[in-house]
Structures are given as structure tokens and as C-alpha cells.
Design a protein around this nucleic acid. Structure first.
Length: 130
RNA sequence: AGUGCAAGUCGUCUUGCCGCUGUGUUCAGGUUCAUUGCCUGGAUAAAGAGGAAAGUCCGGGCAACAUAGAGCGCCAUACUUCCUAACAGGAAGGGGGCUAACUGGGAACGGUUAGCUUACAGAAAGUGCCACAGAAAAUAUACCGUCUUUUUUCCGAUAAGUAUCGGUUUCAAGAUAAGGGUGAAAAGGUGGGGUAAGAGCCCACCGCUCCGACAGUGAUGCCGGAGGCAUGGUAAACCUUAUGGGUUGAAAGAUCAAAUAGGUUCCGCAUUGGAUUAAGUUCCAAGAAGGGUUGCUCGCUCUUACGCGGAAUGGGUAGAUCGAUAGAUCCUGAUUGCGAAGUCAGGGCUAGAUAAAUGGCAGGAAUUCUUUUUGGUUUUAACAGAAGGAAACAGAACCCGGCUUAUAGACUUGCACUUUUU
RNA sequence: GCACUCGUAGUUCAACUGGAUAGAAUAUCGGAUUUCGGCUCCGAGGGUUGAGGGUUCGAAUCCUUCCGAGUGCA
């Protein structure tokens, strides 16, 4: 099983991020906001993901890093949940909007829920558009 | 041994599994005529946040810009000397203030020592402000008051009476600044002489100002002389003086360079008046207008359309690379200096990210604190064992030197206090 | 990264160029009015002027160090 998260699976280009936030859809699953977008016409390409923590809610840089690292680890260890999807060009944004520090196990259960729900939404919605 | 204060140093260690970042080695594939080059992917090795990385309060390096120059403005700093690349930083010293102890004097007011503290140029260049209270808040003398002389009223005494003397009252002129309950602050202070009453008017002491000599690199100190004393406070009010500052910040800037779109740069003509010519053909003269620019002025600089003719060829966005990590560096020793620090010698040091790495999970160890429980003890405390919990402030973003602020705990040194023993 | 602004009763705002018990509206509480409530009238409480330090006789105001909130440039 592939537990890696190299740079090609992370979202870092400004253009794609703008696309994600302007044209993508989103849902809330407290304490996370999930933003996702499927770019059409892309033949190959793994899902790309972005992690973010609100600066207004979490003031100190140390605590923001703390949460981001746990989010990254939780995604890295559970990303096989969305590998079953046969969709190319998926971009994903995970934004933490809570105001309290969380431990790893709480974050992990939430991330698993999010990924399961994401699979459901994509399987039901995408055929309707096409 | 404990507690407190000050200064300084450190600010957890470790095993397994899974990851991230750049670097080295190596393997595979692609590209190429070819390669030790370039691109993609894999394996592996060692390395990978701080004392403040923070706040962004100062200073410097570095970079670009004639919109960089000159003057004014503006901003900053402000006892002295030194350190430094530089500073609003640091070191040493001086002055002032406060506190304590001792001490001189009748008083005003001093002296010595120790500790703490100090944004500490100029109020005698000018302007402003100083509420309430108070006669007056800066020109000191308008007012109350004190004193002298003259006039008026009344009373008393003397005298036969006009009158004289003493007291009182009123007006005017003059002298004076001692006193006037206030206030944060009142025009040198204390004591004496002096005078009609008074006053630095005069004298002694104290304070102040100025001048000179000596000591010191200097701030300043000390000694002597002079002045009779003028000059209230506020410059973290405007201001004056001296010194410094060009502006903008790495998202600065440099290089390479897709896709899309057609451009971009340079030169000439193209303004007005006069003469001339077939002709805007040629010659002469004039110099304008509109922008840009850091607060203003000068200066500097750009354009004068559209268009026509000629010549040259790349400019530049996304993105990538450099800038960008070995330096005013750290440690040790010697040496100079009171010290900050300098010099010399030896040794050490690969974090380099960019939607932003340096981690996650599970376990172990050390130290400290704490909860429960067992032993022990008459009980509590201390002590020993077991189990559980907690362990700071905080995350590089071009790089350095400082400052400020946050910080559980451990260690070292010095000082003070308490207890025990000798 | 750089530059700058603002913090005053529970809330919204005042307070002149430093000068005295920091003021107004609204909200709260109490009373009056009403059968009861609202409206209305009267009265009261509520502020260490974000925190600390300094200058000054005197600080919301001036200077400085922190804390918090916000704005602009690229």
C-alpha cells in the first residue's frame, strides 16, 4: 500500500487554487470545511490536496503547524479510501475552521468520515452533469 | 542545609514502524551523434528550528532607481570619553535626585561613606501656557499696609483771646517694598547693623552668577578673586543650536523563457512667422504647449497625436533558476585594556523551505510537581514502595549587530538572611 | 514583508490648544402614573479612560514599552 504524499499529490500552484475556490463546491463537517473540484478533460493525474488552518481562529503559528501536521498524516494514512474513484483531475481543499487544538485520533476519525462522504457525493453527482 | 536577590549557562534523552525537505552515492527509463550533461522514477547514507526563530523598536550589509542632483521643509538624536561596520546599543566616568548611617553649625545650610536611580543641550534669541486660590503668576508695584509733610473735622490740656502742644479723622503730595492667611511655584536665605519707616542699603555666613589659575583627553572638580543678586516653571509646547538622514525594500533585483495576441525600438517629416519656388521646394528667425517627479521651488526627464517613409529585432506574462546561506561567524588559549572590546595562534561549523519541510503513531528512561493508595508512626509531617496525570515560552522566510517582551525546570558563581553543628 | 490608524459606562458616541466630581443618549434597577402592561415623568447605580512606566504642580489628552482590534501597498 502506498502511504506516500509527495509534492505531485499536493496542491501548490496558484492558478489551480483559484480554480478550486472559485468554481468548486464545498460542504462542512465540523470542524472542517471541504472544498473540491473536478477539472474536466484531464486524462491522467492523481488527486491533489491542500491543507489550511484559519489564522483568525488559531492565532499562534506553532498551533497552526500542530494541526496541519496531524491533518496531513491522517490524509496520508487513509487516502486509499478515495483511490477507488475513477475520476481524474480531482483537487481537494481541507480547511480547519475550529478554534481549539485537536489530537491526532479525533482528526483521523473526522478525515475518514470526510473521505467516505466525498466518495458518495462524487459517485452520485458526476454522472448527472455528464 | 534552606530561602531570597543579581549575573551567567543549558533549556530533555532514546527504540521501532510509516512519512517530508534539500544534498551525496547508485540503479532503471527517456533525450542526444555521444557523454560524467539534462529530464522522470526508485533504492540508500548522513543532515534538518530558537534563546528568544516572536514584537518589528533601532542600526548596518545587499539591490534598484537623475523621479538619485541643489536649496528649503521634514524626521531622528542630545552630559563626557571610548567601543563598534553602524546605532536611539554597550563600557567607563561626571553631574543631578532619593534613601540610610555618621558628622559640622545658633540658624540658613552643609560635609563624608554606601546603596538605588536618572530621555541629563539651550528658558540670558523669540512666541505661547501656568486652571482654582491669591494683592500679584512675570513688565513687579496697580491694591491693602508702614512712614513723613500739608489741608480739613472733632476731643483734651495750657492761655484773657487769636494761638501752641498731644491725640483722632479726612484729602493731597512724597518715600518704601519689610509684611499681606493663597498656591505646585511668590522675586536670594539666616543673623546683625542701619533708618522717619524700610530695603543687599551695609556687614558676616550660606546659596547663586561671572572671571582667572591649577588638575583632567573631556564632562567636570578644586582654589582664589569679583558681582550685591540680575535670570520663576514648562522645550516628552512651538522653537534655537549642533550632528546625522536621498528614496524604496528581497513580493528589491538579475537571468532563462511556453501558450495566446500582434507588436517593439531607432531615425526623418509633422508647430508658428517671414522670404522664395511649379511644388510643405529651399532658406532664415522664433522658441511653445502638455505631462512625469518625494511636501515645495529650481533642475531633470518624457511626449507632441493619427499617419507616411526607412532601418533593426525581439520585448515580455504564467512558470523556472539565481539572489539564498562561510559569516562585522563560533569555541579555546595567549596578549593589550579598569571595561565594552581589539590583535595573534589553533580548532570547529553543509537547515535552506516557497500554499511554505524539519513530522505522526506506539513504547522506554531521567528530573520536577501533583493525586490516590500501601508500609511505618499515638497522630501529623518527613521517609520508602506501587499506580495514574502534567511538564514552559514558542516555529526560520534575504542575512547580520542590538533593544524589548514571553519562558516550566536544571546547573554554576557572588551577596544577604535564617536554622543546626564545631 | 513594509507603512499606518484606533482602543472611554452593558452599547453608540462626546470631552477645545493638558486644568480637575470624565458628559449625553440608550440599556439596567427603583419610584410615580395604570385594574395590569406599554408609552410618559422623576431618581439611582454603573468608568481604575486597554495594561505598565515616565514628563508635568496637574495626563483620557504629551512621550515610551507591551496587549488587542482594524486599514492600506505590492
Amino acid at each position: 500500500m502506498n502511504y506516500k504524499l509527495p509534492k505531485s499529490e499536493r496542491l501548490h500552484a496558484e492558478k489551480e487554487i483559484k480554480e478550486l475556490f472559485n468554481e468548486g463546491s464545498s460542504f462542512f463537517l465540523y470542524p472542517f470545511k471541504v472544498q473540491f473540484f473536478v477539472k474536466k478533460g484531464v486524462v491522467d493525474g492523481t488527486p491533489k490536496v491542500l491543507f489550511s488552518v484559519s489564522k483568525k481562529k488559531i492565532k499562534k503559528a506553532v498551533n497552526r503547524n500542530f494541526i496541519k501536521r496531524r491533518m496531513k498524516e491522517a490524509y496520508r494514512l487513509n487516502k486509499q479510501l478515495i483511490s477507488s474513484l475513477e475520476i481524474n483531475g480531482l483537487t481537494l481543499g481541507l480547511i480547519f475552521v475550529g478554534s481549539v487544538k485537536m489530537g491526532f485520533h479525533e482528526v483521523e476519525t473526522k478525515i475518514i468520515q470526510i473521505l467516505k462522504r466525498l466518495v458518495k457525493e462524487l459517485n452520485s453527482n458526476i454522472p448527472d452533469h455528464e
